[in-house]
Amino acid sequence: MKTAPRRTAPRLLALLPALALTTGFVAGCSEGGSSDGASPSVSASVEATGQVAENVGKFSYEGEDGKTALELLQEKDPGAQVQGEGEQAYVTAIRGREADPATEFWGLYVDDEMAQVGAGALETKDGQTITWKLEEIQQ
């Protein structure tokens, strides 16, 4: 009985460009060369991504006398998305991260305490820390 010839070589050759790209990407993610010639750690890249993802859900800035939390948010993040205006404004996205209206919202905090009014009505003061946190809606 005759068996079909194996076609391993073409498959292997097809994988070489992907392997080269992956190796180049991992090497490019390191923050400098290693003097011992060791390969960079992939886990360092994953940890950096985790840090970026963590920061997407929180955004802080300092309060300023005479300015609302909404005015300052729009200065610090011109791309922030808001529905409504003034005291009726509702923040839907910060730093490109849109809250899922079915499960999330951007909560407003002043010095680590949840604000009792909306961003358009909250007059800030010098020295206050204004923080927005992406939070889950409690059902």
Rank of each mutant, 00 (worst) to 15 (best):
G84W: 02
E87V: 02
G37Y: 07
R97E: 10
W132C: 08
G32Y: 10
L122M: 05
V117W: 03
G37L: 06
T103H: 04
L122K: 00
S30D: 12
E135R: 14
K125I: 00
E135M: 11
G79M: 12
E64Y: 03
P5F: 03
D126F: 09
P5I: 07
P10C: 09
Q83T: 12
K76P: 00
G120Y: 01
D36K: 06
K2C: 06
G24S: 13
E71T: 08
I130A: 03
T49M: 13
G127L: 04
T129L: 05
L108Y: 00
R7P: 00
G127H: 06
D77Y: 03
R97F: 03
A9N: 11
E98R: 14
V46M: 11
P10V: 08
L19I: 12
Y90W: 13
A80I: 01
K58C: 12
L134Y: 05
M1C: 12
V42K: 15
G63I: 00
L16W: 10
S35L: 07
E113D: 05
D126P: 05
K76D: 02
G37V: 01
A121N: 02
T129I: 05
A44L: 14
G50Q: 05
P40T: 09
G118I: 03
L15F: 10
A53T: 11
R6C: 01
E64H: 05
L13A: 15
T131K: 05
E98L: 11
E75F: 04
I137K: 15
V26L: 14
G96F: 08
L16N: 08
E87Q: 03
G63L: 01
R97H: 04
D77N: 12
E75I: 09
V82R: 02
L15N: 10
L12T: 15
E47F: 06
A93K: 09
G118Q: 01
L122C: 00
Q81L: 13
G86L: 07
E75W: 01
R95C: 06
E98Y: 04
P78R: 08
A48C: 12
P10E: 13
R6D: 03
L15S: 13
Q88C: 00
A20C: 10
A27M: 11
P40N: 11
E135K: 12
A4C: 00
G84D: 07
S39E: 14
K125C: 02
A27I: 08
V42N: 12
A18K: 06
G79V: 04
E71N: 08
N55T: 12
G66N: 10
A20D: 09
T49G: 06
K76R: 11
R97C: 06
L73M: 03
G120D: 05
E31G: 15
C29Y: 02
G32V: 08
C29W: 08
A53W: 10
I130V: 15
T129M: 02
Q138R: 15
A53P: 03
G66E: 01
E64L: 11
S60L: 14
R97D: 07
A121P: 00
G66D: 03
R11Y: 12
P17W: 08
Q74F: 05
E75M: 09
E135D: 06
Q139A: 13
Q74H: 09
S43F: 12
E64M: 07
T49R: 09
I130C: 02
Q51S: 09
R95S: 08
G127E: 06
P17L: 09
D111R: 05
D65S: 13
E98A: 15
Q88E: 11
Q83N: 15
A102W: 00
